[in-house]
């Protein structure tokens, strides 16, 4: 390099607005927004539209802040896994300390603002979600146990409970059922992904079930959790958030998910390698539709109720 040459590399501190936004894990945030909104709208008490908008926004910011703290903590393994190498910290756009400061500030900001916009039960649940995702999942479970996804899934399952608490100021059977639905859905969803993203987790030393117990055990676990999920998902149809539309949707989706999980269990690695994990990939995609459609069905029941047709009444 000559004395007159100029460093044209984008250095840390030169991040654009989009890089900071990427730190908030926008795709995860969209799931948080959607499920929190359904929780809020499904609740029996109405909320002023502006306060509902502000509450969901602060829940999303809180979820995004925990994502930024997760990226700060996991920067070392994000540099190894191909799926995460383009994230702002491994890409060298944002410094680790800056990501930590950004995440920590937004966490406090989101909790305080949610408390002011709605109530302190909802704010407390948001604070617990951030704590659970960052400390319990990212710092503790993720690198120490193959059950990381099972227990860590609680963080992703809390947003509908927060949405419900925004409207009601408390917790009820319905909001716990929405939590349980996402909680039980998370393991088969992520294990299906782990089956076809195999080298990533192994290279990074993350003890996913596929790495610690093998792929045959993972396939069995997917089937077991899908069987356990079905009665919870269908059972919610008989509560205040359910109704005929939800029940019919849930039965169809659970039959589809069970069939997919059974197919995964039936296959061995040779078959999966031969068709490039076609079944595993399709079950993973179906699991996304499964969760989305369940929450849409809850919303449909709520809107039908406005015209006297929703629920079992």
């Amino acid at each position: 390099m000559s004395d007159t040459s100029i460093n044209t590399r984008v250095s840390e501190g030169d991040a654009s607005f989009g890089d900071y936004f990427a730190l908030l894990k926008p795709r995860v945030m969209s799931l948080v927004v959607f499920t929190a909104l359904v929780g809020l709208l499904a609740a029996p008490q109405p909320v002023h539209p502006l306060l509902a908008f502000a509450s969901v926004l602060f829940i999303a910011i809180g979820g995004g802040a925990s994502g930024a703290l997760n990226m700060w903590w996991d920067a070392d393994i994000d540099r190894i896994m191909s799926r995460t190498q383009s994230r702002p910290i491994p890409a060298g756009k944002i410094a680790e300390q800056e990501a930590f400061a950004f995440g920590a500030f937004l966490s406090v900001f989101a909790v305080v603002m949610l408390g002011l916009a709605s109530n302190w039960v909802a704010a407390g649940l948001l604070a617990f979600t951030i704590f659970f995702y960052v400390v319990v999942y990212s710092m503790w479970l993720k690198r120490s146990t193959p059950q990381n996804i099972v227990i860590g899934g609680a963080a992703g399952a809390l947003p509908p409970m927060i949405g419900w608490a925004v409207a009601t100021g408390g917790v009820s059977v319905e909001s716990v059922l929405m939590f349980t639905l996402i909680f039980m859905w998370t393991p088969p969803h992520f294990w299906a992904l782990a089956l076809f993203m195999k080298s990533d987790y192994r290279d990074a030393g993350v003890p996913m079930l596929t790495v610690t117990h093998g792929r045959k055990a993972t396939r069995r676990h997917i089937l077991i959790y899908t069987i356990l999920l079905a009665p919870i998902a269908i059972g919610a149809g008989f509560t205040a958030i359910g109704g005929p539309v939800y029940l019919a949707t849930s039965i169809l989706l659970n039959l589809g998910f069970l069939k997919g999980a059974y197919n995964i269990w039936q296959r061995d690695e040779a078959e999966a390698e031969a068709d490039d994990y076609k079944v595993e990939k399709s079950v993973f995609k179906f699991s996304l539709l499964y969760l989305f459609a369940h929450f849409v069905a809850i919303l449909v029941e709520k809107f039908l109720a406005v015209y006297g047709m929703g629920g079992w009444a």
Partner: peptide, 29 residues
């Protein structure tokens, strides 16, 4: 470099402006 920084500053300005409006709206409600 300038366009990156400008992009960041404009983005932050818009976010802060939107936040002020949101707090005003929440206070009114």
């Amino acid at each position: 470099l300038h366009s990156r920084r400008k992009n960041r500053n404009v983005g932050l300005g818009l976010v802060l402006g939107a936040f002020v409006l949101l707090v005003m709206g929440m206070t009114y409600v």
